[in-house]
Amino acid sequence: MESQPIPFFVRFRNIGVLVVLIVLVAGAALLTPQNTFIQEANLKTLLALGPEFGIIALGVGVLMVSGEFDLSVGSQLALGSLIFISLAGAGINIYIAALLTCLLGVGIGLLHGLVVVKARIVSFIATLGFMLTWRGLTEILTAGKVRSYEFVQHETFVQIFTGRVGDVVPSQVIWFVLFAIVLYFVLHRGRFGNWIYATGDNAQAARAMAIDTHLVKIVCFMIVGFLCAFSAILQTTRTSAVTTHAGTGWELQAVAAAVVGGTSLRGGRGSMIGVFLGALVIMVIDNMIVQARLPYEWSYAAFGVVILAAALLDLGIEKQIQRAAV
């Protein structure tokens, strides 16, 4: 009556992602013209800009473990930026403006969650609708123009969100790591995390054990909404402006980050360390394409290939699990 060992690829999945990341970084360092990738200026840019995407990807990973998708994260980012800059521009205390923006993000997540679990619309479709809705709303409200605001007047605020710690590490990196740590505890060490996994893995079994799977999914959508709003604050503070194109394409990049990090497209599987590393992989690829001076269209093809490769690998792992079960 011995149980089978956990398949190799499943147990060491995170190490696999880490290897991919190291290979990518080494490749980028060697292959970009004049090795610009590893030069200080670029690394600083990467570490300041990357977390804006990475923070959102962390939330998307958690949501995917619960078995749902949110394709509207890019649009939520744009809308959140607009809200934040409008509130700040209206003369509201900057911290209160940030708080209200985050609350609105949570509210948007609540709406997404309710539509998905109560109206029973598949999240892929429901959030596709919201992706267009929020983006369209942002365009309408800005009339397509760039809105700007001088954040420099709030020195401490700017320092907290976009400053540098010890004059070296961008604050954004600290936030990214901080959220990853918090979500690690939520997902892997808390009761709620076990409910997220159970909901994504076998919702029927979870319900039979009195887990409110609807509530679990709604909260996961709210986590995503909050992180999108937070990222919007980081980005707006850094650029002092909001453009309606902010975050375009991030919805699929975030899914790619989660899948590269070992999150199952069917829910119930994934880890915070994996999603964190997966987000770094996507950040590096994105930066690499810019540094290699390739036209930006290349990134679409690159992420397409990355998603397909990761999904295929995921399929292989699932098969291995099944085989081990026999």
């Binding site: 149980s3 076990n194 996994y197 159970a198 893995d201 076998n202 029927q204 079994a205 979870a206 039979a208 199952s264 119930g268 599987r269 699990i321 079960a325």
Partner: peptide, 12 residues
């Protein structure tokens, strides 16, 4: 079949 979550550990 509906009782358990296949990708979670026995203890969980």
């Amino acid at each position: 079949e509906q009782a358990l979550c296949p990708h979670l550990s026995i203890a969980r």
